[in-house]
Simulated assay, not measured.
Amino acid sequence: MKTSEKLNIAIIQSDLIWENPEANRLQFERKVNQVDNATDLIILPEMFSTGFSMNASVLAETMSGETVQWMQKMASEKQLAIVGSIIISENDKFYNRLLFVYPSGKIEYYDKRHTFTLAKENEVFSEGKNKLIIEYKGWKICPLICYDLRFPVWSRNVENYDLLIYIASWPKVRISAWDALLKARAIENMCYTIGVNRTGKDGNNYEYVGHSIALDCLGNPLSKETNNDDEIILVQLDKTQQHKTREKLGFLNDKDAFILK
């Protein structure tokens, strides 16, 4: 795979059809097909095929299930990578699993580390154990999920990654925290940071207002402010520019050393 100093990303901010994987796949297929061929990576929200549901025993799929196959099909047809999370059943456990699907169909995955206790996600889903660093087109990417955003130690940039991604179902009532924490994660980790949140209302009547955004390594927005609209947000990241800023300021050189247990 060719490396590139620039990465073209499409953020798909969308309402989700509650607990209806087939309908969500159809709506996202229409949206994915609107993205042009210059795009390198498409980012979808958390649990994009179902909404943030605890009904895992009914909705869970396997790693050879229809939504995984759909992601591979889309990645292959568009010749780009796609990332999003779905409900996975594996070894008699359920996971909120983020899938990074390469154009070749290869899959790397990350299981949500911090399950959302307020919604009792911890009572349904098993927590992940491992942080994932993806290497794609010469970029090192750290993908995380929603509630992980509140725990900066887990995202600490000890791997010298270039891009931090959060996919989410972050409700309107706490959206100011989403805005603030995304900016903080970008600044403290000196990296491009992208947050992708859903819109609309879910089956539990929680409202979501988007606020998906791309930030540079100083916390400055690279995309326009989004509210409660379904839209595709396009952004280009420049690794050379980020490297120059890191070299000039040197903040990552002074980070604390630690080991997570």
Rank of each mutant, 00 (worst) to 15 (best):
G51Q: 05
N204Y: 11
F251V: 14
H211M: 08
N122F: 07
P143H: 04
F28G: 07
R174V: 13
E231Q: 15
V35H: 00
N160R: 07
L98P: 01
K120R: 09
R97T: 03
S49I: 08
I232N: 01
I43W: 00
T67Y: 00
N24W: 05
L215M: 02
N157L: 05
K112D: 00
N197Q: 04
P143S: 02
S155L: 14
S155T: 15
L7S: 04
S49H: 08
Y161S: 07
N253G: 11
N197P: 06
E22Q: 14
S169M: 06
N37W: 15
N24Q: 06
E123V: 03
P171S: 03
S64Q: 11
L163D: 02
F100N: 02
K140D: 11
I175Q: 06
R156S: 14
Q69T: 10
T115R: 05
M54E: 14
M1H: 12
I259Y: 14
V32D: 04
R185T: 09
W178M: 06
D256P: 14
L118H: 15
G128Y: 08
Y161A: 07
D148H: 11
S176V: 10
Q27F: 05
Y206N: 08
T245I: 12
K6E: 09
Q34E: 09
I12N: 07
N253P: 00
N205M: 09
S212H: 04
S64G: 11
H211S: 12
N33I: 09
Y95L: 02
S49T: 12
R198E: 11
K248C: 08
I259C: 12
G51I: 02
N55D: 11
I134S: 03
A257W: 13
W154V: 15
S85H: 05
L98K: 06
V68H: 03
K172Y: 13
G51A: 04
L149D: 08
E90C: 14
M74Y: 09
A119D: 12
A81E: 04
P103C: 05
E19K: 15
N228F: 10
G51P: 07
D216V: 05
Q241T: 12
I187S: 07
N160C: 12
N205A: 09
D202W: 00
W70H: 02
Q242P: 10
D40R: 10
V209D: 15
K93C: 12
R198D: 08
W170R: 02
N189G: 07
W18E: 13
V153K: 15
D179A: 12
G84F: 06
L252C: 06
A186I: 09
L222Q: 02
R30Q: 13
C146L: 06
K172T: 13
C142I: 11
L7R: 10
F258H: 11
I167R: 03
V173S: 15
Y110E: 00
V158G: 12
I86E: 01
I12P: 04
I88Q: 03
D162R: 03
W154H: 14
F116R: 02
F251T: 13
A23D: 10
A23I: 04
S14Y: 03
L99W: 00
I43P: 00
V124L: 04
D216W: 00
E247K: 10
V101A: 05
E121W: 00
K183M: 06
D162C: 05
E61V: 01
K172G: 10
V153R: 14
D238H: 06
N20E: 13
Y192H: 01
W154D: 14
K129C: 07
K201P: 03
K255N: 13
T199K: 04
A75N: 02
Y192E: 00
A214M: 00
E231N: 15
E108Y: 05
